[in-house]
Simulated assay, not measured.
Amino acid sequence: MPNFSTLTLCITATSFSISQLLFHVGSTWLSKRLTCGFSKLNSKQKIEWNSRTVSTFHALVVGCFCLYILLYDDAVNADPVWGDPYMVKLNVAITSGYLISDLLLILYYWKAIGDKYFVTHHVAALYAYYYVLGEGMLPYFGNFRLLAEFSTPFVNQRWFFEVLGYHKHSVPNMVNGVLMTVVFFIVRIAVIPTYYGRVFSTFDLLHCRQ
C-alpha cells in the first residue's frame, strides 16, 4: 500500500495553490509592470502567457532543488533505488502540485492552451511520481529527470519574445536562443550517458542482490 506522508501531501497542495494563484493573479500583476506589451495581447495569448509564467517559476524552483539533491544528497546517490527519498519527495511533491494545477488549467482553457500531448505528459509524469511519493521507489531517477526543467525558462522566453513582436534576429532573441541551445544540450542530451549508466548499474545491483 502506498504511504503518502502528511508533509508531502501538504507540499503538493501548497504547490497547487501557489500555481493557481500565480496563474490567476500573480502573473498578470507582474507582467503589466514588466512590459506594456502584455496589455496588448488578446485573451488567448494572455492565458498562455500566464501558463508559461507559472511554468517558468516551477522550472526554476524544482531545477535548483534537483541540482542540490544530485550534488549533496549522499543517500540517494549511493542507492538510486531505495536511498532515503525524503528530499526527493519534497521536490517531486512540488512538481506534482504544479502538474495537477496545469492539467486542470489545460482542460478548462482547452481552446486556448489545450494540447493532448501535454495532457499525456502530465498524466504519465504523475503516474511515475505516484510511486516516488507513495513507495519511495527510484528517488534518484525521479529527481534526475527534473534537471530537464532548466531548459524550460528559455523555451518560454522565446515564446514571450515572439508574442511581444521581437524580431528573431534581435539581440535579446539571439542571446536567449544561444542560451536555450546550450542549456538544452547540457540538461537533456549530455546527461544521457550518466543517466543510463546509473540505470544499467542499477540492473547489475538488483541482479547481485538476488
Results as ranks from 00 to 15, higher is better:
V183C: 00
L107Q: 12
A93T: 06
S151R: 06
Y127Q: 12
T8G: 01
A190Y: 10
Y140V: 02
H121N: 09
Y109A: 11
K40F: 07
G197P: 08
V163Y: 01
T28K: 15
D73L: 02
V123H: 02
N3Q: 08
S17A: 14
F200C: 10
W49L: 03
Y98W: 05
W49S: 02
N143L: 05
R52W: 01
V119M: 14
I47P: 08
G37M: 10
Y109T: 08
C66T: 15
W110G: 09
R52D: 00
P172W: 07
W110Y: 13
L34C: 12
F57K: 00
I94W: 02
A93W: 04
L99M: 12
H121C: 07
M87Q: 11
S96G: 03
Y196C: 07
D102V: 03
L179C: 12
F118L: 01
G197M: 13
T35D: 13
T6K: 10
N77S: 12
T181D: 08
R158E: 10
F150E: 04
L7F: 14
L30V: 14
W49I: 04
W49D: 03
C64A: 15
E162Y: 14
H167R: 15
P2E: 01
H169R: 14
M174P: 09
N91F: 00
V182G: 09
W29A: 13
W49K: 06
F161D: 09
F118W: 08
T95Q: 15
A93S: 12
P139T: 00
G26P: 01
L138A: 10
L21P: 06
I18C: 07
L7A: 15
M137V: 09
D74K: 14
V132K: 09
E48K: 13
N156H: 06
L146D: 05
E48C: 03
A75G: 03
M180A: 13
L99D: 04
I11Y: 07
I106P: 11
L21S: 14
T12L: 13
F200L: 13
Y117C: 00
K46P: 08
L9I: 08
Y68K: 12
V191R: 00
Y196D: 09
V123Y: 03
E149K: 04
W82S: 14
